[in-house]
Simulated scan of single mutants.
Amino acid sequence: MFYLFSKSILVEIGFKDQIYYIGNEKFNSIPDYLLNNCYSSGNWNRALKYKTAINEVDKKYFMLDVEVYWNLTSKKIELISKIFFFSEIINSKHFRETFLNTLLTHYFKHTLKILKPKEINKNFIKVYKPEISKDNLRINNFDNFLVLNEEISFKNKKFKSINKVEGKDAFSWNVNKLNQIVYSFSHEILEKDTLLKNTDFIDLNNSLFYINSLSKLNKNLVLEFCVYDKKTRDKLMQKMIKQIKMSNDSLANWHLFNLTKDIKYLKIELSKISENIISPEEYLKQVYSKLKRNYEKELLNL
């Protein structure tokens, strides 16, 4: 069982002539502790209500917390309540057919989503052990991220430099109108890896792989995952470093520092400056004129 999310729903309880109605079911009795904790009004603007199918009855309302799980063995969505009385009700055929989609749609109403389902199955969950990452498409800071999915727009994201995979061409870069550096790497950096295949973007600073996908279990269920995998990230970084070095770019060490945050690349540049006729100040001005990025703080800490 893989936990997905929790949701509170307002369960409508109809009652008439000592008979109680929930959904399309009727009960001769309901535990007193539930009735004593009911609300007399269901006039809650944002509450999700599971209404009784029976009309012309008096009504009470119980706020029920429901946990939503993915049963990896049966490949089904399962609902669990800590209140035993409601367990069969929320897993009944009527609830599933008339209310489950409403519950999912309501929970993900404001969620940004990628519409194409990915190959996320039982084996993927067991191997990579993803964590839930709610609203991962709303992450704002994309500094030193690697974008793998072309559907991900980083136009309005915050970053000093960002990386993307684009075509079969070798390493390249450009500075946009916001003075942000956009690095492009060829597809050769990507292995045939299930994690990379499903990943939309990677936080290279923290080895976090973000995934957003509609579920094949139900089109209204959005899978928002984050996977920590330093080993895969390190392999990827080595290939990116190799592409930068092979490019013979005159600013390669600056690019390598932007990618790795390793000050050894700045030290190499400083040693080059000392061997050059040009003054350090003039050289750094030239670097700034090309990269539009100031490295004074980093250089002062060397």
Rank of each mutant, 00 (worst) to 15 (best):
E151L: 06
N91D: 03
K292T: 09
K116N: 10
L34E: 08
I22G: 07
N206R: 06
P31R: 14
Y20V: 03
E56Y: 15
F62C: 00
K155W: 00
N206D: 11
L270T: 07
K7E: 15
K118D: 03
S247K: 05
K292P: 04
L284Y: 02
Q286C: 04
K297M: 01
L195D: 07
S247L: 08
N43E: 10
Y3S: 13
F154M: 07
E296D: 15
K7A: 01
I244C: 07
T194Q: 10
D65K: 10
K157E: 00
L236T: 03
K75M: 08
V57D: 04
K297R: 12
F86T: 00
L10W: 04
K122R: 09
V57C: 14
L103K: 00
S40C: 10
L204K: 08
S8N: 14
A252M: 05
F201A: 04
M246A: 12
N136G: 01
Q238D: 04
I114R: 05
F142E: 03
F62G: 02
N248E: 14
I277Q: 12
S133M: 12
E275D: 14
H106C: 05
N212R: 11
E78N: 13
T105Q: 09
I139R: 11
S40M: 09
N218G: 03
E281W: 13
K297D: 01
K82W: 12
L217H: 00
K7D: 04
I114N: 09
L291Y: 08
K60S: 09
E97Y: 07
Y21C: 06
K261Q: 10
I13G: 13
N101G: 07
I80E: 13
N294E: 14
T98P: 00
S213A: 06
K242S: 05
K155T: 05
M237F: 02
Q180R: 15
V227P: 11
S186G: 04
V57M: 15
G167L: 00
N91R: 13
Y50D: 14
L270E: 15
I241D: 03
K168N: 09
F171P: 04
E191Q: 13
L146I: 11
K158A: 09
N28Q: 07
I80C: 08
N276T: 14
L251N: 08
